[in-house]
């Protein structure tokens, strides 16, 4: 009996960089991803995210292990594989620097051999949804980063790929551009069923776009599951910043509430919302004092990841 295989199937994948002393970039990676899901790969710099992305893109071959995307082995069947994927690397450009964007698009049409009618339809839809109309005839070197990234997304999608790989796509973008990119990617997955693989250091990217998180650290998968579950499992910490009208008071904080910073008029604390309710923490910090401003937010991805590491370090001992 033949079992149907998931869209992306990775089993016991290892990658070692050969150099003076071998560097293990990925170790025993097992991952299955169904078509049409949005998955976030997170982890600190050097964790192995980019290596995994490059192997998935067919650019690099693993040292050992199995990887298949839609039944193809990316590094062996590179041309057929990459014809069905789109990639956006936030720190690199795939558009021709000296050419107007519209010429870059025409070139990509010829490279991917997109039939003319389909190309025109897809291109016009992307121009509209990414609002490229006003700078379509300008060369890439004259564009702002926000404009360029929107054009990069269009360039990655002109051949209507089934899988979109995004490597830090919002890095360096201003807030409106980030919001635009997030909602565009979300629509892409929801309306068109494109499978999304995203790496990012921006927690809001993760919250807005993905359904499932894969946490990578030291080349291993440390955690894998829906965002909500992970939060419960790994006490996803919150940060509370309180600004006072007068000097910030001295506080005696109970266990589990950590003082992050204290300036003349501001106090920042971190806490686990599963152990201390936000209401309690606010009243504790703000008690009897006039509050000028207040912010409650998730702690940064780095803090989250660091917390996860600590948990794992504890688990392994």
């Amino acid at each position: 009996m033949k079992q149907s295989q998931p869209y992306i199937f990775i089993s016991q994948l290892n990658k070692t960089y050969k150099s003076d002393s071998d560097v293990v970039a990925l170790s025993d990676i097992n991952l299955s991803i169904e078509r049409g899901t949005a998955v976030g790969l997170i982890g600190p710099n050097g964790a192995g995210k980019s290596t995994l992305i490059k192997i998935l893109s067919g650019i690099m071959r693993p040292t050992t292990g199995i990887i298949e995307v839609d039944g193809r082995i990316p590094y062996k069947d590179r041309k057929a594989h990459v014809a069905t994927i789109g990639v956006v690397f936030g720190q690199k450009t795939q558009l021709w620097w000296d050419l107007p964007i519209s010429r870059s698009f025409d070139l990509l049409r010829d490279i991917y051999r997109v039939p003319k009618q389909r190309f025109v339809r897809t291109r016009d839809r992307l121009i509209e949804s990414l609002k490229l109309g006003s700078f379509l005839e300008r060369p890439v070197r004259q564009l702002s980063l926000g404009q360029r990234m929107r054009a990069e997304f269009a360039a990655a999608l002109l051949h209507e790929p089934a899988l979109l790989i995004l490597d830090e796509p919002t890095i360096g973008l201003d807030a409106p551009s980030k919001i635009a990119v997030r909602s565009f990617v979300r629509d892409l997955q929801r309306d068109q069923g494109v499978t999304i693989l995203l790496t990012t250091h921006d927690m809001l990217d993760v919250e807005e776009i993905v359904e499932r998180i894969v946490l990578i650290g030291h080349g291993r998968i440390l955690a894998d599951g829906p965002l909500v579950d992970l939060r419960k499992r790994f006490s996803f910490e919150r940060q509370l910043d309180v600004d006072f009208f007068d000097n910030a008071p001295d506080l005696h904080l109970p266990d589990g509430i950590e003082l992050l910073a204290k300036t003349e008029s501001r106090i920042s604390v971190a806490f686990d919302p599963n152990k201390h309710s936000p209401t309690d923490v606010i009243s504790l910090v703000a008690a009897q004092h006039q509050i000028a401003d207040m912010r409650l937010q998730p702690r940064s991805i780095e803090d989250f990841v660091t917390a996860l590491y600590e948990k794992h370090g504890a688990l392994e001992q």
């Binding site: 067919g58 650019i59 590179r78 041309k79 990459v82 990639v87 690199k92 795939q94 490279i111 991917y112």
Partner: peptide, 14 residues
């Protein structure tokens, strides 16, 4: 130097 070479490798051409 910049790693942009990855884009040459994600095209379905030789």
């Amino acid at each position: 130097r910049t790693g942009t070479i990855v884009y040459d490798r994600v095209r379905p051409i030789d």
